[in-house]
Design a protein around this nucleic acid. Structure first.
Lengths: 228, 228
DNA sequence: GTCGCCGATTTTGTATACAATTGTGTATGT
DNA sequence: ACATACACAATTGTATACAAAATCGGCGAC
């Protein structure tokens, strides 16, 4: 939590700040997000914090339990599958559209994004790298000029970050940059077919890199498991 | 607004009630949703009303303008196209999944839904018919057992209702029931191919029944138009 | 008569106070 | 020693009070 009391926060900016922290794994799944605690951290009242937490709960990044408070969400195995199912429907054809409408300026943005990903990985800032990796996908929807789909992809990408936190199998460096480079090449050639197919494969790779066997809910206390 | 002070409202139920009113065109686009007004209507404080309005704004059914209040959204032509673009990506393949997993119980639900649609049309309850027509689409996602996609489709269907309110060309009875009957037949035969194709065609028909020429924003006061 | 400015009123944004619910710890009885 | 019941503490849910912003009306100037 950036408790800098210098900035002027509102519910949207607090929600964005929290979402980024969750996306970067600074706030891992199941973290309790107390209203008083957050209000003090940001220097605002519970009113604004509550609005932000409600916003995040609508994006399924935060789970609200009545009279118990807000917690960083812990997507189930089933939810994990659903998220990537939805991404598989939305992103490949959006990548095709993006490739067909690609401009040099948009290409530069994507290239800069990949460069930042590499820089973050080199600096051992895994959370930031993961965030930027997600941004790459959202940026593609933006380039495709589909703000509605962009909003869905943005939500799905953030939720994917939670899924990765819970079910990631190989803890090694995120080798996704290869896939992003391949996509970038397709975009350079304005090759919609290739972009669609590469995105499809990229998402499949992501799912297979997860451990989605139906074992009991992970990373939770016995008490929590029984209350579920 | 159901100002029955008998029920106990919370932010979620108020949001659901308002969403249904919007979906049924009882609250047309651009309607001002004053906090005090709603609070009095539901017999609750502004706090709860605000939470409900924020929730609806996240679904893009309500537009919040800072220090000016909440209004039923007026999707632009561009947003209208985007909504149906997103539906075209999500719903056809979801209909295929639903067809492949179809059970007799699920079929019965869909049949009952269509029957209700007819009943509403016969009773000249156009709003209710439109709502039920949307429910048909959401139900398909539910049957496909994809709650994440179901949430997206639910949002898109509600937004489609606003789009229909603004851009519907032929004000005649909603002739969609034909398409829904055809889909039901495909579901009865567990024919995934047919279901996917029928849904695709159905959505295309819907878009072409709209008047999405880039005329100026409709149905708004001069003052509002200038402030935009 | 029209345009522009300024104050009063209305409405939203935020903070705080109070009520309700949940979880925990302790005491007591078996 | 264990289980149960009760009371206390902590946290969320809701209402209300206050502050800030925008709208609307009237007034005056041109």
């Amino acid at each position: 939590m950036d408790a800098t009391e210098t900035r002027q926060w509102n519910s949207d900016s607090v929600a964005a700040d929290l979402e980024r922290a969750i996306h970067e794994h600074r706030l891992p799944p199941a973290t309790k997000l107390g209203e008083d605690e957050l209000g003090e951290a940001y220097g605002i009242s519970r009113t604004v914090v509550r609005a932000a937490l409600h916003a995040l709960s609508h994006r399924r990044l935060v789970e609200l339990r009545r009279n118990r408070g807000a917690f960083v969400a812990q997507p189930s195995v089933r939810e994990a599958r659903e998220v990537f199912e939805a991404r598989a429907l939305l992103e490949p054809r959006t990548a095709r559209s993006a490739a067909e409408r690609m401009t040099d300026a948009a290409l530069a943005v994507l290239e800069a994004n990949i460069a930042d990903e590499h820089a973050a990985l080199d600096a051992r800032q895994d959370g930031r790298a993961l965030f930027l990796s997600g941004r790459f996908h959202v940026e593609i929807a933006r380039i495709a000029d589909q703000s509605t789909i962009e909003a869905f992809v943005s939500e799905l990408v953030s939720r994917s970050s939670l899924i990765i936190a819970l079910y990631w199998r190989r803890r090694a460096a995120l080798c996704e940059t290869q896939a992003h480079h391949a996509l970038l090449d397709a975009f350079r050639h304005r090759d919609g077919d290739a972009a669609e197919q590469l995105m499809n494969g990229h998402l499949l790779d992501l799912v297979t890199s997860l451990d989605l066997r139906n074992v009991a809910q992970p990373a939770t206390s016995l008490r929590e498991a029984l209350n579920r």
